[in-house]
Computed example of a mutant assay.
Amino acid sequence: MSEQRRDPDRIKMPADVDAPDKVAYGLTFRQLAILAVAAVVFYGAWQALHTRVPTTLLLGAAVVLGGVVFALAVSRRDGRPMDLWLLSAVRHSRSPKALASTDTTAPVPDWVQQPRAKVALPAPLRLPADAIGDDGQISLAGGTAAMVAATTVNLGLRTDDEQQALLDSYGRWLNSLSTPTQVVVSAQPVDLRSHADTLADTAHQLPDPRLRAACGDHAAFLADLAERRDPLRRQVLIVTRTHPGERAGHSARRRAEDTARSLTSLGVTARALDGAAVTAAVAAAADPYRPPRPGGLAAPDTVITAPAKEPPP
């Protein structure tokens, strides 16, 4: 058995460095504050009701409510404290569920008949992005951002030394980040039906009958696969941003290109996206189950013209 190598320069770092500090009894300051407020409320209720309500009933209610408050203070759901999770649930239930990109505060015209019952009006849709440039930079309220598309690496097929080298390279890239960076890993449906139709339409152009038969069989296989399964593809996007006070220019684009070069050392294929690719990525993130429009979308500030009409003979 080979002796495990030990690197004297390598130290262990806890994974919960962002966890709040424990103040007393294994509880954080937030948890202690919730329990302290509940204790003050219970004490005030006891002072006001112990002469009017039986003691047994007050103690039973205190035990039940105390257990609820304690569970609210120490439990978590979806990685968030339970009190914040319930607060978010209340805000979500009271917020409008319909959003509109137009102005929803305009008065209703006189010729529109007002509904008798109260109807929830849509709220204005406020997106963080204002525009997407030709170079792929996204204009935000506090700066700019850019996207990088990258492939993945299967660490299970690498040796221990290769895995360690890849992790070290990835760690160096993470340590080099000085601005907020987002890594988005999503699964999107693959449209095999269009590929099957394209193969079936172009099969007759092949010179050899056996090639035409093989192309037709492959088209039928893709069509059957699209009919019986829901194939997905994995997409990895990295969003780089600039500092709030940083001069705009092409800073976000340069950060995206630096990120692509840094990730190339991991053995992945990474490239900074241009305006059309960023627009398609944002549209796919908003509605992943709708295929993109044929021909794409026009870039900002692009003059859209129609083809010139031929003069009549």
Rank of each mutant, 00 (worst) to 15 (best):
R158N: 09
L225Q: 08
S95T: 10
A248W: 02
L155D: 10
P122E: 03
G275R: 00
A200S: 15
A260E: 05
P189A: 03
L27Q: 01
V90G: 05
A187M: 15
P122C: 00
A120R: 11
T104V: 10
D7Q: 06
S176A: 12
L155H: 06
A38T: 07
A120D: 03
E246D: 11
A214H: 12
A286H: 14
L65D: 08
V239L: 10
C215F: 07
L99R: 15
D168K: 13
M1Y: 05
G60N: 06
P54N: 09
V185Y: 12
S194M: 11
L237P: 07
R94D: 05
Q47T: 13
A48Q: 14
R290V: 05
S265N: 08
G249T: 06
L273P: 09
S169V: 02
E310I: 08
P231S: 03
P244S: 00
A213Y: 01
T105W: 03
F70T: 15
V17C: 11
P128F: 01
A256Q: 00
T105Y: 07
A280R: 11
L140T: 03
A145F: 06
A308L: 14
L177Q: 15
A214S: 10
R5Y: 15
A100P: 12
G245E: 00
R126S: 10
M82Y: 04
T152Y: 13
N154V: 04
A141Y: 09
H204L: 07
H243G: 11
A260C: 13
L297Y: 09
P14K: 00
D16E: 03
P313Y: 01
V53H: 08
I304Q: 11
I11M: 04
F29H: 11
Q114M: 14
G171I: 01
A146F: 00
A223H: 07
A214C: 02
L199E: 05
A196L: 06
V69G: 13
L86K: 08
L87F: 02
R126W: 07
A106H: 01
A141M: 11
P109F: 01
A165M: 06
P124V: 06
V119C: 06
V41K: 12
G275F: 01
L65I: 06
A100G: 09
D7I: 03
M147S: 04
Q235R: 10
G296W: 04
A252V: 00
P311W: 02
Q114W: 14
L211Y: 02
